[in-house]
Design a binder for these strands. Sequence first.
DNA 1: GCTCCGTATTTTGGATCCAATATTGAAAAT
DNA 2: ATTTTCAATATTGGATCCAAAATACGGAGC
Lengths: 220, 220
Amino acid sequence: MSPDEARRRPPTAQQFVLAELRRAITTGRLRPGAPIRQDALAEEFQVSRVPLREALKTLQGEGLVTYEAHRGYSVETLSLDDLREVYRIRQLLEEEAVRRAVARLTDADLRRLAEAQDEVERAATAGDVLSMATANRVFHMTLFDCAGMPRLVRMIRTLWDTTDAYRSMYYGDAGNRERVVKEHRATLDALRRGSADEAVTTLNVHRDHAVAELEPYLNA
Amino acid sequence: MSPDEARRRPPTAQQFVLAELRRAITTGRLRPGAPIRQDALAEEFQVSRVPLREALKTLQGEGLVTYEAHRGYSVETLSLDDLREVYRIRQLLEEEAVRRAVARLTDADLRRLAEAQDEVERAATAGDVLSMATANRVFHMTLFDCAGMPRLVRMIRTLWDTTDAYRSMYYGDAGNRERVVKEHRATLDALRRGSADEAVTTLNVHRDHAVAELEPYLNA
DNA sequence: GCTCCGTATTTTGGATCCAATATTGAAAAT
DNA sequence: ATTTTCAATATTGGATCCAAAATACGGAGC
């Protein structure tokens, strides 16, 4: 194993498989609705079934997989209604996070947000879909973190996870990438002026557009 | 084992242990902040550490315990800020659930709610704190379920779980029990009239009073 | 052909054992 | 006395093995 891999590889097997499983699910390699065969996956990831099952329990808690006693785990299918529900809940929670964040924003916070936005723009112009997705996430989470409500942020993060599989599709389109950049700039602007209302509104539009674009994919 | 116990005992050890752990934590037998010794608990519950660890992973997802690699699990401590945060998030999510529920309420739903309320009143007059807590929960969850948003309800349920330990304290006071009965009646009334605003307002008062009463306990 | 039943196989659930890591305590050096 | 080092111990992490349950399959009966 390369030293780089060794450094990145988590200290426990369950954390390692958790990350791998997440990726497998969110990239769609494990199809929604498909049963999860513990033996096969354990062998693929070169671990025993024990850490695998612990990772699955975590994912169950996050709603990425379902579990039924003696019948095992399956990848959760996200129906159109589910997608709408997730985004609606996100709207509720993120509005709260943004309002609290605005009330507490420091100059250092704004600098960190600007840096995150730079990264987003870099990825957008490079057309790097994967970097774009992670940079975008960093931007939003940085903002949410400023709210000083750790549980709230954790819940939001979990909601993001459940739709990660679909988000990368969104960034495949150059127009969408450009749009995201503009919306982020508008958000940053509102934040600098301390206008919670405008920030919330902008982000709502941002989010609604994403879900509208994603809906077609869900029927497949 | 009595047939009654056999019927109630879940089909898997992890589900059994999960229920036991929840009770141990929410009743305070496992103190907040205390490390969880897997060997000791496994022996106490007469299971091996494997199902115990899976149950702990579930509780970790719910935020009832914390986990650190190679250092194990501890009972999560709920600070005053945490309590306020949980109740604030509940307010956001429950308002949404109630509004959706009101828009979809059927006569059958109202009957089920009335039945749940009967149970609450029975427990309240009997002074049965434990029954009161469960009946109250049934009442609220019945209402939330009517929203037809399963993920939202699941999140709300999880939030209730994290403060369960403290809720039973609230019902120890006869005045509080009486108050709850009255507030539920007002809620039911608003629901029957289809007034979402009133229902939401009533429930907000209901919830805020509970958190205010609970706060003193948190400093201990 | 269809259903029902029982057996074989697959898959999950759990117990035990060993390995890896963290913690504790005591001795040695400063 | 304080700090450091290192061994002993306790505790968690994971692999393997066996048990229990569900599923798949095939034949008997209708």
